[in-house]
Design a protein around this nucleic acid. Structure first.
Lengths: 207, 207, 207, 207
DNA sequence: TATGAATGAGGTTTCATTCAT
DNA sequence: GATGAATGAAACCTCATTCAT
């Protein structure tokens, strides 16, 4: 009862009860919906303000209490990873059928980059956290499977290595950073032209 | 008694977020077991982190939902009282047979104090809640029954009053607060020496 | 500009300017006064709520912004140490003149304990932070200088060691914890009687 | 460029709280030197932590009071502009003599990008502040003067427009973001290869 | 009745900005 | 003109408590 330097947030200090009107507690049924809402909100917030955006903004946009955000995603990185994971999965799924070619894959990646400033963070090496690297690797693996065909058909420059693919993606994304929404697609297309890659950018985000 | 509080940041988080039907709801049959588990968990958590420890830690350690904790113990003080009650009962039971003497009783109380930082809360007057006082009184009553004999046999200083007994107990406990587990027993023994009381500390908590 | 997982508090997120009416900025001249006010506030807040009390309460009671508190005392322990340091210095100063005896020193320590629940934290070993130990040691050193005389004159029990002095102090303080203000002095006196020490408790805190 | 941001929690704290007359106030004579120190500090801090880094870190690294920073650069953007301006001037000066070619200019720009994460902010359009655009334009103007010669000599791809030059620069910078210091030059070189430009990167920042 | 998720108040800490000296 | 302290808004995170299932 008289501990020195205990965690001060735990202790003799009386807390006032929570819950005094406000949003109703919808119970556990809201869990899945809340998680989805948080992901969607994070996608938008991170997309426009970067992955360092205030988490309180994410919670607010999701219409969810701060505590719920932390229950689902205890650390910022958990949320970041979850957001990127969705996009990586989308790329992997797109690559599943055999007829898909590199321009389609680059196109989807480009679409994600156009929709979210934060996407660059995924494909660049040297990132501080270990859980992002595997995601970048997964993208690299998928892209690499179509590289030889693309070079053969002139849709990628000869001499392109798998590493170059990720470099090219981050360069394309770099060309978008700070660019107004309306100009992004045009800039992205020109970036790929300068790099000598063919791309087919879908109209809307798939998955 | 060790490692009671795991990193709380990792605590309540659902690993598989929308998993339905996680732990089996045993219904009413679990009630008695849950109550016991909560008490045991509270004894350990309060023992190492004080009676102000997070209740979520108690529920987690008991392997019980938060709601169940609140059903059994609507307020924090209910849980605190229940935990102390166990110890008081143990003292009373120890005192039942006629051959038991003051050093045995003080020894058991000391054992409780050594095992739990929170025990001081019980034996000191002026505590914010009124339900702790009767518990302290019950201890006082039990101890007082053996006081005269103890004085007569030199196991307590002459002139000791019943009030002094509780004061001495809280002094002994004060000498323990903040002391590492390993040193507690030694310190407790020296404390009783300084006070001039004989004690016989049992090896493990009885009851 | 697009760093992943930078410290989120530093970044692209626009901040709104501070300073919109409120307390006037009195300039650096307020520094010394603020520090003193913070110390006084901490003494009171820690004294009644323990050293784990909310720092915001300290800042508020001092009439000082949160930021100023952190400028002067970047971590909680800095404030705790500063508060205790004052009391230790007071004991050391009291001990300076030759005529002072152990009962006077114990009396001052008792006065501090009576005035502040938190004082126990200082004299007990095993405390998590390394900066508190030296303060406890300083008290021990001062008290030890008068121990032999005190034993010789019957003001301390024969066989008392310097270590016992600190144990006795924390026992006395333990006897006070949770006790209402009005009863503290009486309890402290009785505690010292039980321990067999003579004390002379001053009427008000010196220093 | 390394270890720019010391632990901020230890930062502005007064070690000796009430010490009067700490650093000597040199008065107006310090003005020019302070401005230069602030610029140098900002270059390093922004270079490693981005243009959103704490201004207090800049002031501290410059060894200058917070107030002085605000006197010289009332808003963050003023400091950002001033930092970039230096680099633009360096490019312009490099371009002054007639023998200089596009690979030299791109090389200098690349050097700046390699040395500073924040350089991307300059060459991308759509940046929130209007005062960065002119700087980007000045770079564009300078680069454009050598474009035709570069195309003619095969040092730039045929069909490159002046706009493409800035896009290419921001792409190269995008390829660097988040990359460890040691790998930057290698990545930058490969980026220019993918883009089909010749560059001559100087060993150290000029100007 | 048990479960476990939701909520939000309140504590901590940082940092942009102002201002007396 | 320089200094360095003050201020407070806002972000972070925890945890007591409620409530749908």
């Amino acid at each position: 009862m008289t501990g020195v330097l205990r965690d001060p947030r735990r202790g003799d200090v009386p807390r006032t009860p929570a819950r005094r009107g406000g949003a109703p507690n919808l119970g556990p049924r809201a869990a899945a919906g809340n998680r989805a809402a948080l992901l969607a909100a994070a996608r938008e917030v991170f997309g426009s303000a970067g992955t360092g955006a205030p988490l309180s903004a994410v919670a607010k946009r999701a219409g969810v209490g701060q505590g719920s955000l932390y229950r689902h995603f205890p650390e910022r990185i958990d949320l970041v990873v979850a957001v990127f994971e969705e996009q990586v999965v989308a790329v992997e799924e797109l690559a599943a059928p055999p007829g898909i070619e590199l321009p389609d894959l680059l196109g989807l990646v480009t679409r994600h980059a156009v929709d979210s400033v934060a996407f660059v963070d995924l494909v660049r090496p040297g990132v501080p956290d270990t859980r992002l690297l595997p995601l970048g690797d997964r993208v690299a693996v998928v892209l690499a499977t179509r590289l030889d065909d693309a070079i053969a058909s002139g849709e990628a420059p000869p001499g392109t290595t798998p590493d170059d693919l990720l470099l090219a993606v981050s360069m394309m994304a770099g060309g978008l950073s700070g660019v107004a929404e309306a100009d992004r697609v045009r800039r992205a297309k020109r970036a790929w032209e300068l790099l000598g890659f063919a791309v087919r950018i879908p109209a809307v985000t798939q998955g």
